[in-house]
Amino acid sequence: MSTDPRTAIVNIFIRKPLEIDEPDWCTGHPDPRAGYKVDISHDGPEHVIAPRGQAMFKAFISQAPFASTDRAIGLYVEPDLEPQTCTPDDVNQLADDLIEAAEQLRALGRQLAEIIDREGQ
């Protein structure tokens, strides 16, 4: 058995504050602990798209400025629908709700286009 000291290489986080430019549409960074620079994202206000008070989608403008792939500003859209079995009347109502939701998504898309035009991306 050797009496020489053993060594190991261990990966560690090196943490220090990072000052970054923030677009005017970003609502801030409530969690100050981004594990890696690529995890940093700018997020606008969350919009709950809820025809008749029934949440269907959540959406917000987002950008990951240090991402390793796509750094473009985009609209993050998350479905918030519960699976359900529908009657014919339910299907008609769902179709109407989807039309209303589409109008709201288009409005957010127009806001996104304005931001992209303004920021020259």
Rank of each mutant, 00 (worst) to 15 (best):
R52L: 10
L105N: 10
M56F: 09
Y36N: 12
Q63H: 07
R33I: 03
Q104G: 06
I99N: 02
E78L: 04
P32C: 02
V10H: 14
Y76A: 01
Q93Y: 03
V48F: 08
M56Y: 04
C86T: 14
D90V: 06
P32F: 02
A107C: 04
P17V: 03
K37L: 15
A34D: 13
I61H: 06
N92R: 15
I14A: 08
C86Q: 07
Y36Q: 13
L81P: 01
D96H: 07
P88G: 13
P45N: 07
I9V: 14
H42G: 06
P65H: 05
I73R: 13
L112M: 01
A55G: 04
G28Q: 02
E100S: 10
D21H: 12
E78V: 02
A72N: 13
L81Y: 00
I49D: 13
A113E: 15
G35K: 15
E100N: 07
I73A: 02
A8C: 08
D70T: 01
K58S: 14
D24C: 03
N92I: 11
T7N: 09
D89Q: 15
E82S: 11
D24M: 09
R118T: 11
G109W: 01
P65T: 08
Q84D: 09
R118L: 05
G44K: 04
T27H: 05
V10L: 11
Q104Y: 06
P79A: 00
A101T: 06
E78C: 04
T85P: 00
A107K: 13
G109R: 02
D39G: 02
D117N: 15
D80Q: 14
M56H: 10
G44F: 02
A50G: 12
A50Q: 14
P23S: 01
V48M: 11
L105G: 11
D31I: 06
I99E: 11
K16C: 10
C26L: 08
V38H: 03
R15T: 12
W25R: 09
W25D: 05
P79C: 00
E82V: 08
E22C: 14
L108E: 12
D97V: 09
H42R: 05
R33C: 07
E22V: 14
D24K: 11
D24R: 11
P17L: 10
R118M: 08
L94F: 02
A102I: 02
A67Q: 03
V38W: 00
P45C: 06
E103K: 15
Y76H: 12
V10G: 03
L108Q: 10
T7F: 08
Y36T: 12
V48P: 07
I20F: 07
I99Q: 10
R106C: 07
Q84A: 14
C26Y: 04
V77R: 00
A113G: 06
D97E: 03
D96I: 10
D39W: 00
G109C: 05
N92P: 00
Q54S: 11
R33L: 05
Y76P: 00
